[in-house]
């Protein structure tokens, strides 16, 4: 049996090659540099939240008033039944248009102070605008759900049914709009987003009579539920890509 070789003193061996003394001014230089660093920029959702305070109050008010008015018209004007659900879906599909309509305004307003805004936030204008649009979209979605819930209670409809028909077209159109937003400039985006919303409305309006009753009937609900899940996932994915800046935004 071969004798086991003794373990060398690895620490002593390594210390044979001692490092030269660092520059005595090294720590002081690091401290000086540290004091000149600006505070770190907010990241992720902190950045999105910080942008909520920069959106003009008038813009918030206009968004919510218009959305509430449209839904109030549907609520008061419709007969309970499948027709009401159809109207809800129609309005929900059109709701992202309120957001789309503000894109030009947002871009124009921020373009004048673009450099200052970019320097202040240390993010590109594209990401700033995307964050603000995301805030609008989330607020629209929440408000839509609340108003639909109130409508459901008043019209004696099941809440989840009304939410299903409200949120599905809204999420579909919003996801498509965000996908377009990542690729197009403001003018082109506004037109393309309007086209998308219009197409969604046409799809919702075209079926008449028997087809519409079938589309909003009990049998079609699994289809709506699947569409809602897919559209929510698509919306979350698009929002994530926008906030993380995974792809170049040309807005």
């Amino acid at each position: 049996m071969t004798p086991r070789t003794p373990e060398p003193d690895w620490g002593a061996l390594l210390r044979r090659d001692a490092p030269p003394a660092p520059d005595p001014a090294g720590p002081a230089n690091t401290l000086r540099l540290l004091r000149t660093l600006p505070p770190p920029r907010p990241t992720g959702w902190d950045f999105v939240r910080s942008q909520a305070g920069f959106i003009r109050k008038g813009m918030w008010a206009a968004q919510f008033v218009v959305l509430a008015a449209v839904l109030a018209l549907v609520w008061t004007g419709g007969d309970p039944g499948s027709d009401l659900l159809y109207r809800y879906a129609l309005c929900a599909g059109a709701a992202p248009l309120l957001l789309v309509a503000n894109v030009q305004d947002l871009a124009r307003v921020y373009h004048q102070g673009m450099l200052e805004l970019e320097l202040a936030t240390r993010y590109s204008l594209a990401k700033i605008t995307a964050a603000r649009l995301l805030i609008f979209g989330v607020c629209d979605g929440v408000l839509l759900a609340v108003l639909a819930g109130a409508g459901a209670v008043a019209c004696r409809q099941t809440l989840w049914v009304v939410l299903l028909y409200c949120l599905t077209p809204f999420c579909c159109v919003s996801a498509l709009c965000l996908a377009l937003l990542r690729r197009l400039r403001p003018a082109a985006f506004a037109k393309a987003a309007l086209a998308v919303a219009a197409a969604a409305l046409v799809v919702l309006t075209l079926p008449a009579g028997r087809i519409r009753r079938h589309l909003y009937g009990l049998d079609a609900r699994p289809f709506w539920a699947a569409a809602l899940i897919l559209s929510v996932l698509a919306l979350a994915w698009q929002a994530r890509r926008l906030t993380r800046g995974g792809l170049r935004t040309t807005l």
Binding site: P22, G26, P27, T30, L33
Partner: peptide, 28 residues
């Protein structure tokens, strides 16, 4: 932390890169 551990981190970096200036840069 810098004042207390600058030399320690510097020595660690130096053993990896083998250059004084470079180790100081990496430490900073």
């Amino acid at each position: 932390l810098i004042l207390a551990h600058y030399e320690e981190i510097y020595a660690y970096c130096w053993r990896h890169v083998g250059g004084r200036e470079l180790a100081q840069d990496l430490t900073q």
